[in-house]
Design a protein around this nucleic acid. Structure first.
Lengths: 332, 332
DNA sequence: TTGTAAGCGTTATCAT
DNA sequence: ATGATAACGCTTACAA
C-alpha cells in the first residue's frame, strides 16, 4: 500500500518530474498534446493524487485557516461556523475548528499549534487573555480577524454586531408598549467580553435616555448556573415588568424559570431576547427576539480574511458593525 | 518578517540542526545539560516554532482528521461536531470540518482533497453516492469511520443510534396511552439515508406488532419545504391522533404548523419527536422526545478512529449501536 | 518543449 | 554526545 508520488507518474509516463509538475499546475503552454495525454493517462492508471503537504512546504501556503471559537454553547457560534465553512470553501480554503472554551491558555495553545501547522490565517472569537500574542501576530502581519468580540487596544479587524443598538431596539420596543421597570440579565464569565459588556452598556444608556432608573438590581451578570436563583431574587426584589436577556443561552434559562414558576408571558412579565432561536415563532407566546445577521457577519469575516491572505499589506477598517433586527412578537 | 527555522536555532546555539531536532523531540538521553540549555535559550530568543508541515512531510502524519458532515441543519450534526472536537483534541488531533450537504459530488471532492492534504483519517456522515470510493479507501486500510449512517455493503465501522428502537420507544409510549391512529413523518431527500429509513421501518414494525394499521398515508417522507402542505393533507385524510416526527428539523415544521392552525397538543394531536431540542422541557406543553446519546456516539467514533490511526491493521466490529432514551413529557 | 538540480524545514541514519 | 547527510514529495529556475 505504497503512496504514489510524482516520480511514479513521471516514470510511468516517461517524462520528468518537472513536466508532471507543470501538468499538475496547468502550465500547458509549452506542452505537447502527446505528453499531456501520456501524463493524464499515467495519473489515471496510477490513481495519483498530489501530496498537498509537500506542496505546502514548498509554496508556503496551506489553503487552510484556523477558527477558534470561544463558546460553542451559543447558537450564534455554530451558525457562524457553518457559514464560515461555506464561504471559505468558496475560496478553496479548509477550516480547522478549535474551541478555546473562553480559556486564554487553551486559546494560546491552539493559536500556536495552528501557526506551527502553517495555517494561512485565523479567525478568532478572542478571549481577553492573549493580547500580547495577538499584538505580536499583528506586527508580523499574520492574517487574523476577530469575530463577535474586539479588543480595544488592538487594530485587528473585528466583525461584530452593533450590540448597543441591539439593546436599544429592545428597550425602545419595551418602552413603546409602556414598560418602565425593565431588567437586563446576562450570563457572566470572569472576563469582560464584548457582547456582554456592550449589550449591558447599551441597555443602560437606552434606559437612561428615557429617564428610566437602572439600579444595580436591574443589571444582572451571573454565571449560567446561578441564573435561576438570580431570577428568583429579581422577581422578589426589583419586580420587573420586562426582562431583556443578553443571548439565547440566557433566554433558555429564563423561559425555563418562567415555566416552572407558572409566570405568564407577557401579562406578568414581558420578554425580549437577543439572538434568534428556532422555536421563537411558534412558542406560546411567540418570543420577540433581536436577530444577528450571522450570514453577513461570517461572510464579511471570511472575505476580509481571504483578502488579507491574498494581499498581505493592504490595510483594513478596524471595526465592521452589523445591524441587529427586531423580530417583533407577542412576548412583551 | 522571515520565518525562523531549525537552522537559525542551530547557528544561534552553535550546534547542528540534528541536535536541535533531538531537543525538539525530547530525546535528551545523550544531550549535555549545557547544549540543552543553549538550545532552549536560542529557541526563546528567536521565538522559534517548528514547522509542522515539514515535520508532517517527513513523518507522514499530520495529526489532523477530516470530518464530513452531510446535513448541518440538524442539531445532532452540530452536537456531534462539538463533541468530536473535544475528543479528538484530547488525542492531539485537529479536525477539518467539511460539509457535503448530502451531495455525493461534494463529498467525493472533499474526501479527495482531505486525502491530498494527508489527513490521518476521516469521519463521515456518508451519502449513498460514493460507495466505490469508500470501498477503495477501505481496501487501502485508510482509517475511516461512518457516523449516523451506514452503508450495508461496506464493512466500515459505523457508529449510530438504534433507530428502530427509537421509533419503537415512541410507538410504545403512544400505544400505552391509548393512541391508535399514529402517523410518521420525515423529511426526505433523494437518497435513502440510514436514520430516515430505519426510523420509518422501526415505526412500521412497532405499529404492526400492535396490530395497528399503517396505510400509505401514515408513512410520510417529503422534502422539508413540502412538510406543511403534507401535514394539511394528513390532518384531512388520515386524521391521526398521534404523530411521530423523525428529527428536530421536522419537529419544528410540525410545531409551526400546529401553532398556525391552532391545534391543541395533546388533546387534538399527540406529538413525540426523535432528537432532543433545547426548548422541549419548557414548551407548552413540554415535548416528549427521544434523545440520542450524542456524546457517547461522538466519543466512540473519535476513539475508534484514533485507534485505527495508531494501529492500522486491527479489525473492528462493524456496527456500534447506541440506545435512544425517552424523555417522557406531556405532549402526548 | 522537456529535463536537471536545488531547495522548502524537518527527521533519521549513521558516523565520529 | 553531536554532526553530516540523505531523505520526505513537491515546485521552480535554469539549462538543454
Amino acid at each position: 500500500m505504497k503512496k504514489i508520488t510524482i516520480s511514479d507518474v513521471a516514470s510511468e509516463a516517461n517524462v520528468s518530474k518537472s513536466t508532471v509538475s507543470q501538468y499538475l499546475n496547468n502550465r500547458f503552454e509549452y506542452m505537447s498534446e502527446e505528453t499531456r495525454q501520456k501524463i493524464q493517462d499515467a495519473i489515471e492508471t496510477l490513481n495519483y493524487r498530489p501530496n498537498i503537504v509537500a506542496r505546502s512546504l514548498k509554496q508556503k501556503s496551506t489553503k487552510t485557516v484556523g477558527v477558534i471559537v470561544a463558546n460553542i454553547v451559543h447558537s450564534f457560534s455554530t451558525q457562524v461556523i457553518n457559514e464560515l465553512e461555506i464561504n471559505l470553501h468558496k475560496h478553496g480554503f479548509h477550516m480547522i475548528v478549535c474551541n478555546s472554551n473562553d480559556q486564554p491558555e487553551k486559546e494560546r495553545e491552539h493559536i500556536e499549534v495552528l501557526i506551527s501547522k502553517q495555517v494561512d490565517g485565523i479567525i478568532v472569537f478572542p478571549t481577553t487573555g492573549n493580547i500580547d500574542l495577538f499584538e505580536k501576530l499583528y506586527k508580523q502581519h499574520f492574517p487574523i480577524i476577530f469575530i463577535d468580540r474586539k479588543i480595544d487596544s488592538l487594530p485587528i479587524p473585528s466583525v461584530l454586531l452593533d450590540n448597543k443598538l441591539a439593546s436599544k431596539l429592545a428597550v425602545d420596543a419595551f418602552v413603546e408598549k409602556g414598560y418602565r421597570n425593565i431588567a437586563f440579565i446576562t450570563n457572566a464569565i470572569d472576563q469582560p467580553i464584548t457582547p456582554r459588556v456592550e449589550r449591558l452598556q447599551g441597555f443602560k444608556e437606552a434606559m437612561e435616555s428615557y429617564g428610566l432608573s437602572v439600579s444595580k438590581g436591574h443589571l444582572n451578570a451571573v454565571p449560567v448556573n446561578q441564573i435561576q436563583q438570580r431570577l428568583s431574587e429579581l422577581f422578589n426584589e426589583v419586580q420587573p415588568d420586562g426582562i431583556l436577556v443578553a443571548n439565547d443561552r440566557v433566554l433558555i434559562e429564563l423561559l425555563s424559570f418562567v415555566k416552572q414558576k407558572g409566570i405568564k408571558i407577557p401579562s406578568e412579565i414581558g420578554i425580549i431576547g437577543i439572538d434568534e432561536v428556532p422555536f421563537a415563532s411558534f412558542f406560546d407566546p411567540p418570543i420577540c427576539t433581536i436577530e444577528q445577521p450571522f450570514e453577513q457577519i461570517a461572510l464579511q469575516a471570511a472575505t476580509i480574511l481571504v483578502e488579507k491572505i491574498q494581499s498581505q499589506n493592504k490595510t483594513y477598517q478596524e471595526i465592521y458593525r452589523f445591524l441587529p433586527k427586531l423580530n417583533d412578537r407577542d412576548s412583551y
